[in-house]
Design a protein around this nucleic acid. Sequence first.
DNA 1: AATATTTTTTAGATTTGTCTAAATTTAAAA
DNA 2: TTTTAAATTTAGACAAATCTAAAAAATATT
Lengths: 216, 216
Amino acid sequence: MQSYTEENYLKIIYHLSVISNPVQTNAIAERTQTKAASVTDMLKKLSDKELVDYVKYQGVTLTEKGKLMAINIVRKHRLWEVFLVEKLNFKWDEVHEVAEELEHINSTLLTERLDEFLEFPKVDPHGDPIPDQYGNFADLSFIKLSKLKVNDKGTITGVSEHSSPFLKHLEKLGLTLGKKIEVSEIIDFDGSVELLIDYKKINISREVALHILISK
Amino acid sequence: MQSYTEENYLKIIYHLSVISNPVQTNAIAERTQTKAASVTDMLKKLSDKELVDYVKYQGVTLTEKGKLMAINIVRKHRLWEVFLVEKLNFKWDEVHEVAEELEHINSTLLTERLDEFLEFPKVDPHGDPIPDQYGNFADLSFIKLSKLKVNDKGTITGVSEHSSPFLKHLEKLGLTLGKKIEVSEIIDFDGSVELLIDYKKINISREVALHILISK
DNA sequence: AATATTTTTTAGATTTGTCTAAATTTAAAA
DNA sequence: TTTTAAATTTAGACAAATCTAAAAAATATT
Ligand SMILES: [Mn+2]
Ligand SMILES: [Mn+2]
Ligand SMILES: [Mn+2]
Ligand SMILES: [Mn+2]
């Protein structure tokens, strides 16, 4: 049985692995809001438990066991986020802190029943994929519009924000499901994106781009 | 901000206050599964925080502040139990441990939205009253089945023992919330009670009768 | 009232997760 | 290839929550 703290480390290492592998001490320290020395202590502990492969001065990689645990925490986090938004009418920006706590409730029955209750959602309110109980992610063939580069083309296949103001805004801009778009420019200043749609150029904020899902 | 541990102490002191006031160190130690010495340490800490009035060698009483905190934890515990049973199809003997963890999630928004989602339940799956957000309990008038006389009638509205074996036993006997019963005989020999339920006679031990709550 | 028993508290130690400051290793720059 | 800088680890300390064993206080019993 892992402590709340160990679980947070595992999850953070999991997320950081996507960017760099192995994961460095300082990167973890920054995310956990602790000091490098504390991280070193924890890495030794996780290594003793065989949840990470740790090489002094190099960094850590999750073992298969550690990875499964991390994915399970991510699974719970995202399921709870769906619950909060779909059932309790939280806004997409209100769910994170609470999910950060709920993800540590350990009960397989609870997790699986929650999944069922939510009708097995594939993505969370931010468009992030929800792994199944075995740790497998459905291959989602869409990415956030904000991840596209200049000249990339694609089709709008979903949104990861369901609020009325947001949807109305999209509609007004002509950004509806099935529409083909092309990124014509990305403005460094504010991260906003210029799109080509229906032979017209429009500009959307980074905030909006983050919640539009694109498939190629 | 209270720690998980402090919250558990507050809740336990609250429950024990009903039986004896002030609450004694050993009683708390038994409930928290710790030693008396540990309890003494915690009582000093809670006293410093003005959550309890503590008199050496005498015991503790919750302050108004401490009592409100305790009631809020009880509120969350019972709301989550309702959620688990009503929405996730948990059985009434399966909810306790999970609620024991969920009760520590601190988010007013979450608690109030959950209350609303559940349509403001007045009692939990065991018939225990759910306080409102100000700490007020609806006046529920029930008595122990063991206090009934022969020929007394009533409806099962709660239980005062939440262990899984006990609850499963009741279920097997058909003694669930809402069922109407009548006392047909009280056996002097062992204090067991003969009941009329669904036109059938069943016999329950005094031990069981002590933990069934009846309203007329 | 004196003695025995129970209850509670103190003293000192341990574990977990954290910190600061100093030492060490690795990486980058001159 | 030295020298410098950055990243990481060790050493030693601390707060929270717990423990055991011994001392002290409150109750109960003769
Ligand atoms: Mn967390
Ligand atoms: Mn999310
Ligand atoms: Mn608890
Ligand atoms: Mn209950």
